[in-house]
């Protein structure tokens, strides 16, 4: 469980996050939703410590992450897997080396053990026979899957995904969503996903936080979202005619 306690963040004079508090639960898919530029990525980066918060704190299962030094954070960092918006694979390393990279840095595994683990993780995301390819030689959807494989290589307790299905076709998006859901349940991970994909929200959103202009406007589950009277949330969710039609049938 991750507790976000009243955090704020500004860049220069620009307030990007204001007094956001929320709880991300273990073994569940926690979604952060909101329009483009509303602060989802910044919130996620504050939680994982890529940005320092100006105010407030973040607790990882009770451990006050915000007060820790770089060195003190290391053990927690090794429990975190993160899937970046663009995949962020190391482009000079092969697919297999990308997946074994954290293992090489933090474990004493032998070469064979690392290869086995990489193959296991790659199979978990339905990738085979790509071990020796460079990231430039695989498709966008495959990159995302390799990035997931790298994120789960160390058996993370916390998994962060920044827009895991942006730029993917609907079918691949669904596969990725289902994959993340399965992994979350299988290993009882605290998973946090940034998204503005309503399909993801409706199909796997167990706990949803809606961010608008840097503030938390709403939270609930995918079942609550249809009944919500929150104006900003409704504007976001029912922006498309298709979703409006869905609401009328509800």
């Amino acid at each position: 469980m991750i507790e976000v306690d009243n955090i704020s963040k500004q860049f220069g004079d620009k307030k990007v996050l204001e007094d956001v508090s929320c709880v991300f639960e273990q073994g569940k898919i926690n979604l952060i939703i909101g329009g483009s530029g509303q602060g989802k990525t910044v919130l996620m980066k504050c939680v994982v410590g890529l940005f320092e918060v100006d105010k407030g704190r973040v607790l990882y299962d009770g451990r006050n992450f915000s007060e820790m030094s770089f060195g003190e954070r290391k053990p927690i960092r090794q429990e975190i897997g993160m899937l970046f918006q663009g995949g962020a694979l190391f482009d000079s390393l092969t697919v297999e080396q990308n997946v074994t990279f954290p293992l090489s840095m933090f474990t004493n595994m032998s070469v064979a053990e690392k290869r086995d683990r990489a193959n296991f993780c790659l199979q978990r995301v339905n990738l085979e026979n790509v071990n020796k390819l460079l990231p430039s030689a695989i498709s966008g959807g495959m990159k995302k899957r390799v990035a997931i494989a790298r994120a789960i290589a160390m058996n993370p307790k916390y998994l962060f995904c920044d827009e895991p299905n942006s730029g993917l076709d609907p079918k691949t998006s669904i596969l990725i969503d289902e994959l993340i859901k399965e992994i979350t349940e299988e290993y009882n991970i605290t998973t946090i996903i940034n998204t503005h994909d309503m399909n993801t929200v409706m199909s796997i959103g167990e706990k949803i936080i809606f961010i608008y202009k840097g503030k938390k406007y709403w939270e609930g589950s995918n079942n609550d979202i249809m009944q919500s009277q929150n104006k900003e949330l409704n504007d976001f969710v029912f922006a498309s005619r298709w979703m409006k039609a869905v609401k009328q049938h509800f």
Partner: peptide, 18 residues
């Protein structure tokens, strides 16, 4: 610079690597 803008540096940092 490319590693920075494609978040590869963030990916290193998140693993706790300086």
């Amino acid at each position: 610079g490319t590693m920075r803008v494609t978040e590869q540096i963030d990916a290193l940092e998140i693993m706790g690597i300086n």
